[in-house]
């Protein structure tokens, strides 16, 4: 009980600082607004400092927040989160083998739609075909979101394109950088990969149990932090922007846009998502190489179908519809 009340005061204190928008708040004003003593205010300020908040204290002016810690805890993400369901339940970890594995287990145990699993570090982050995903501590966003869409399983792949659009929009909003999407859902900045999305489906033949969208974003890595063999093909938002990005803020914006597009998708289908996807698409009208286990196909990317398949026109002007392949530009 005491603990709950205390964290509530903390939350209101953070809200006051958020309203102050970087300006000074006097200790007197804070104690009035929170209904606690000046000594209690000082105690809360000290606790914030221990958590990594940088606070400046000046006589007669009071306190102001210089910087907040770049953490991806449930508190940081939910403070100011504007969604109804996405991210309203959050499991956050310092480190985890893979957020995807944790989310799959939670989904199996009945976790509600919108449940988010997020970690500061993944010990066994993975991508397509079990390829390793480089996910070191505190630098990126490694998270998995549980959806329970009322759609037939064969329609579920469209959600991977939807996720790519929502994340691209959020990156644009938060950083001002305009990303490109490479089919189906790689997100690139300056031609280098900064986001990978891996989606897993649990379904009966006629019914989806859960769709788990795994999202890996390189946010604040420096180029030296990438292994040498991927430096030429990988980048981070901070490298492209030239300054660090607050990860919790980006997660909030991603959840907000994912939820909105998802609702739109359930009401209006894939068409509106397709148009947005094409707005970010980098490969359309360009020669691409599609690699599959079956072989290699070269051609011009002509767009995507209403189901999200890549339309590839080869040198004999034959149209091919690609369900799965690695695309090289």
């Amino acid at each position: 009980m005491a603990h709950g009340a205390q964290s509530d005061t903390r939350k209101r204190l953070l809200e006051l600082f958020a309203e102050a928008n970087g300006e000074f708040l006097s200790g007197q004003k804070i104690s009035e607004r929170l209904g606690c003593s000046r000594a209690a205010v000082w105690k809360h300020i000290e606790e914030l400092r221990k958590e990594g908040f940088e606070l400046e204290a000046v006589r007669r002016l009071g306190y102001r927040i210089v910087s907040t810690p770049d953490k991806v805890t449930a508190n940081e993400i939910q403070l100011g989160l504007k969604t109804e369901t996405f991210g309203q339940v959050i499991y956050s970890f310092e480190d985890v083998d893979s957020t995807q594995r944790v989310a799959a287990k939670l989904a199996h145990e009945g976790a509600p739609e919108g449940t988010l699993v997020v970690a500061e570090e993944q010990k066994a982050g993975r991508g397509r075909l079990d390829r390793k995903w480089f996910s070191p501590k505190g630098t990126g966003i490694w998270m998995s979101l549980i959806l329970r869409p009322p759609i037939p399983p064969q329609q579920a792949p469209q959600l991977t394109l939807l996720a790519a659009v929502a994340i691209s929009q959020a990156i644009q909003e938060v950083t001002g950088l305009v990303p490109d999407i490479k089919w189906p859902n790689d997100i690139l900045l300056g031609g280098k990969k900064c986001v990978g999305i891996l989606t897993e489906l649990q379904a009966d033949p006629d019914r989806v149990h859960s769709v788990i969208i795994g999202i890996g974003i390189n946010v604040n890595q420096t180029s030296e932090q990438f292994p040498e063999d991927i430096r030429a093909i990988a980048t981070s938002l901070a490298i492209e922007k030239g300054k660090p990005i607050k990860r919790a803020r980006l997660i909030q914006d991603i959840l907000f846009r994912l939820e909105r597009l998802y609702r739109q998708y359930l009401t209006h289908g894939f068409r509106p998502i397709k148009l947005l996807w094409e707005g970010y698409a980098v490969s359309i009208g360009k020669p691409v190489t599609a690699r599959t286990l079956g072989g290699v196909m070269r051609g011009i990317a002509r767009g995507i179908t209403d189901d999200g398949l890549l339309i590839l026109e080869d040198e004999q002007n034959t149209i091919h519809y690609i369900h799965s392949a690695d695309i090289q530009l």
Binding site: P152, Q154, Q155, G269, F270, D306, D307, H320, H323
Partner: peptide
């Protein structure tokens, strides 16, 4: 079209076919 996108034969092609 929205509710049953895969109802028609899916026109996907790989190099092997």
């Amino acid at each position: 079209v929205v509710s049953a996108p895969a109802a028609q034969p899916a026109p996907a092609v790989t190099v092997s076919a």
